[in-house]
Design a protein around this nucleic acid. Structure first.
Lengths: 168, 168
DNA sequence: AATTTTAAGTCAGCCTTATTGACATATATG
DNA sequence: CATATATGTCAATAAGGCTGACTTAAAATT
């Protein structure tokens, strides 16, 4: 309650934005993200991979043919950091490179069949967790969930993920 | 509406749960969590601290007097891992320990004034990011956001965070 | 009273993922 | 031809996890 006296308690945006509420949200995010990534971690470990590998597989799968520089731009890590995981993924046959026909300095990245398969298995687990949460929380909550996530993200990346809510 | 032909294809929960939608959510979570944690990272770096320190400060601040074993249970890391950051925080005067009067093996953890101040500053930044996102997305979306986060979290931790939505 | 269990902490070594800095190579471009 | 760009590599460093092996102090059990 915490509202002294006045009749029309809170007008419309009745989420209180208390310090307590904010802290709680931060805590929820911490636990939720840990459980979310935990889903895939176990499977990755079977291949001797970590989260870094997952991210590479994920984004290459989502943007087939992307250049190394583009991947660096999305992941926001150094090329030395990327190099290690990317080399592993290429050596182990999950990703392949092809030089650009026009500009042969650029190398396009693709998932191999093996890579596609792993990507699918990783995504599947996490999808199930989220789908379950959507079921529990309801369609409206799911919509709100995505809207808030999108609002948290900086504009540049926001545009990259989804060109809008793409309603309907 | 993307609903082909048949009359009552999907009953009520008309969110499509497409593979694409799931992938998008995963991507949103990745970017959002990165931006969320990035807020605090800069400030932490000023003290030579990292995210691990933040988590300790956060949970001790939220549960003053908690024992080391309880903290380990929440963070789900080994005591050797915790030891490193906890020792630093104690040596640098952000956290203090006090032995339990009854069971003197147990040591209770508290934030010092310095610790409280840092915690507040860290939380403030992240609160602002989330509050802004709530403003953008609306009160209803904010509610849905928390509901989905809660549903993602395993039951044990879910109970720990918030004993329910604690409406009003 | 002696033994075992528990809470906390330490030492040593290893792994992953990130960093910076310095270079190397091939290819475009001016 | 000179310079800039895209990619890759070598080397060193750091944070933050991990396992395993102990220690110390205090409580609990037998």
């Amino acid at each position: 309650m915490a509202d002294a006296g006045s009749h029309a308690k809170r007008p419309d945006n009745s989420f209180t934005l208390t310090e307590e509420g904010m802290r709680q949200t931060q805590e929820l995010l911490f636990f939720a993200y840990r459980d979310f990534t935990g889903e895939a971690d176990a499977l990755l470990a079977d291949f001797g991979f970590g989260r870094a590998h997952h991210r590479v597989i994920y984004f290459v799968g989502r943007h087939p043919g992307m250049a190394v520089s583009e991947l660096l731009g999305i992941l926001k890590i150094t090329k030395q950091s990327l190099s290690r995981v990317l080399s592993q993924l290429i050596n182990d046959g999950f990703i392949l490179q092809r030089s650009d026909a026009a500009d042969r300095r650029r190398r396009h990245l693709y998932l191999t069949a093996k890579g596609v398969d792993l990507e699918r298995r990783l995504t599947e687990r996490q999808s199930q967790l989220i789908a379950g949460a959507y079921q529990d929380a309801g369609a409206e909550a799911a919509q709100g969930f995505r809207a808030v996530l999108r609002a948290i993200i900086n504009e540049q990346d926001r545009a990259r993920v989804a060109p809008r809510e793409a309603v309907e």
